[in-house]
Amino acid sequence: MKELHNVNVAMRTLARELLESGTVAGVYGWKKGSRPTLTSPLYIQDAAKADRLAYDQYAVSNLSALLLDHRNNDKKRAIFVKGCDSRGVVRLLQDQQITPEQVLVIGLPCPGMVDEAGSLLTKCAECRFPNPVMADQVLGGVEVSKQPSAPTGVTAEAARKVGVGSRAGERMAQVAQLEGKTAAEKEAYWAEQHDKCIRCYACRNVCPACNCRDCIFDTEKKGWVSKAATSSANAFFAITRAMHVAGRCVDCGECERVCPMDIPIMTVNRKLQQDIEALFGPYDAGVDETVVPPLGRYQTDDPEEFL
């Protein structure tokens, strides 16, 4: 992508400098994969490998959860972030899994991520935060913004053209469509979705909000739920996962993207987002780390339905 040519050059230069100077011990970014339409995660510790870094409209992976590998390490790591990725970093900061001293956040302009066929990903069309919500440095002229905003930086025009954020207003469409169904239809729909789950936990592994040291779905000892992929246990997993990230999900959509069984996980996350906003007021997780997530606080005059 020609708009990003200079950004790519700058990324490599910056990564090299950061590693050579010892400012950081490692850099998270992307590299070109085996196909032109594949840009996959890359972690480098060696300045000589900085030239492998690449960033384009296929660099969809949110790398923030990878920072968890170093959560008990004092050394600093640099990470390149798009808007959605930056909210993952804020998630980890707010959850105190990393400290600001452990991470150097470099914001990038997002051209809008596309699939192999070149069409814009739904999550990008629905994106409200295409710009980093926080960054220590930026490349490509992108502006840091904690407010929903239009794409900025060198790819602003390209992003606008492909329609980044153009369907932000319709992001609850799938939720609304399901809400319109009868109870029996909803039950059948979700039973079908839950039955597909193979409990690979890819959704959890990629999620910056799923940052527990020990996930309750890994520990047998307590016996919350069977590891067998039965309808019952899968439903327990799906609902519990959703409740655990309720009010904390940063809306990056990675869970749904990585799901090998195409389970509409974001529909559940969005449903919770929608209800949280309606019940407890506007809240965007992973934007401002000083605002406690909605389930960790309360108002004495919250809606009352349990009388």
Partner: peptide
């Protein structure tokens, strides 16, 4: 207060998944 937030949300989620709301209730 936390119970209220948590279960207001969970009720809606369960309903969304096809559970009849009469099957899961909270009361003071």
């Amino acid at each position: 207060y936390f119970t209220r937030r948590r279960f207001l949300l969970m009720q809606r989620l369960l309903t969304f998944m096809g559970v009849d709301p009469r099957r899961f209730q909270a009361r003071w």
